[in-house]
Design a protein around this nucleic acid. Structure first.
Length: 391
DNA sequence: ACTCTGCATCAAGACGTA
DNA sequence: ATAATTGATGCAGAGT
DNA sequence: TACGTCC
């Protein structure tokens, strides 16, 4: 569930922290991506049939094993590398204990959904069945292992997070190992990601722009330090604690501005109007956000290598039944992109991504590229007035 | 009048060709 | 046994 | 850009 309403709050109170961009402007940027989330998307979206058809089915290999996740991952990753982006995928470990309660709630909800799904099956309601199928998608260990194998063959680095992938991505950004965390989950900011990149994947052919959210500007424009921001996020509602009933985005922001910390807020809160929930262990939650169980950057070695051509053919074509010419053309793109990436880095032709501020009018002329360091330095300083648009 | 809850609903990828 | 999304948006209804 | 197809 991320942080409840955080995106909207940032839109309203820290619009300058958001810049819109497109993928090619992320040239040479290392980006940490939550792999499990991506696999979900592919398993849900890469289907055939469904619309008035018998049932929505995944793509499969000869023996009926799902290949949707591999199809999606292969092409998406190529697309990113083709644009000069250097993705690395971070896989989930065990969820933290604090999440147990939240997970139990979801389990209950799921049970409910399954009941409804069964009823639909009995009624032969194909539309509802298809909807239900999307809710029962699971990312299995097998999916995960196959995804890792594919990425490794493609020469793309893979990271195993001890706990939440989101937290690991955030730390990698925070410590400068990557430029940002590519995610839809606003938790990333609470975990300290210097830059959060949303909608990284469904832009390009689509009309949705990529949005970069810069944490230091968020803090600056909200007028909060990181501790206060974290406390506010807990108030807004996160995966790790119940929130206080009656406190939404407006009052949460007010309260943190007024009192500065959860301790002070609770001290001054009318507990008859706003009872503190039983399991409101905000001290531990705060600690979890501040120091999640993740690997430090010093223990992670990110290397983008040439693709293993034979390995990819063996895996995708021989084992998974992919069309050989498609796989080969994908490999060609990978090889080609790697070459230009290295060359352009030497030229340092591109500096910082050309961005445009969210509130600026759409039509704008002139280009203004700014200089910035290459390769994986997190943007520690606030974004200035860098206007400029594609041509 | 504003704020929040709770509920419902919805959509969720990418390629190549025409 | 081995998996348990999510965010956005819209609405009615109630609390402040 | 729309649409059938990817496996």
């Amino acid at each position: 569930m991320g942080i409840h309403g955080l995106q909207k709050l940032i839109n309203d109170h820290a619009p300058g922290a958001i810049t819109e961009t497109e993928m090619k402007n992320l040239f040479n940027r290392k980006i940490a991506i939550d792999a499990t989330m991506s696999l979900y998307q592919f398993l849900i979206a890469v289907r055939i049939g469904g619309e008035g058809q018998p049932a929505a089915a995944n793509l499969t290999d000869e023996s009926g094993e799902t290949t949707s996740h591999l199809q999606g991952l292969f092409h998406r990753t190529i697309r990113m590398i083709n644009n000069g982006v250097k993705p690395c995928y971070v896989f989930d470990g065990k969820p933290p204990d604090l999440k147990a309660e939240e997970l139990a709630k979801r389990a209950a909800k799921r049970e409910e959904a399954e009941k409804n799904g069964k009823e639909a099956t009995e009624a032969g309601d194909t539309e509802t069945i298809a909807k239900f199928a999307k809710r029962t998608v699971k990312v299995t260990r097998k999916h995960t292992e196959e995804a890792k194998r594919l990425l490794t063959l493609m020469g793309v680095p893979v990271v195993d997070s001890p706990t939440e992938a989101e937290a690991q991505c955030a730390r990698m950004a925070k410590e400068g190992l990557v430029y940002g965390a590519g995610s839809e989950d606003m938790d990333s900011l609470t975990f300290g990601a210097s830059v959060l990149i949303r909608h990284l994947t469904f832009s390009e052919a689509r009309k949705m722009p990529i949005k970069e959210i810069n944490l230091s500007v968020v803090l600056e424009q909200l007028g909060l330090d990181m501790n206060q921001f974290t406390d506010m996020c807990i108030l807004l509602g996160c995966d790790y604690a119940d929130s206080i009933k009656g406190i939404g985005p407006v009052r949460a922001f007010d309260l943190i501005k007024k009192h500065g910390s959860l301790e002070e807020i609770i001290k001054n809160l009318d507990s008859t109007k706003y009872p503190i929930p039983e399991s409101f262990d905000y001290v531990r939650v705060r600690q979890l956000f501040k120091e999640p169980d993740t690997l430090p950057a010093s223990q992670i070695d990110l290397k983008w290598k040439d693709p293993d051509e034979e390995g990819l053919i063996e895996f995708l074509v021989k084992e998974k039944g992919f069309a050989e010419d498609r796989v080969k053309s994908g490999i060609e793109k990978l090889k080609k992109s790697r070459g230009t990436s290295v060359q352009n880095r030497l030229d340092s032709y591109f500096g910082a991504p050309v961005k445009r501020k969210l509130e600026e009018p759409k039509k704008e002329k002139g280009k203004g590229a700014k200089k910035a360091k290459t390769g994986g330095k997190a943007a520690a300083s606030p974004v200035k007035k860098g206007a400029g648009k594609k041509k």
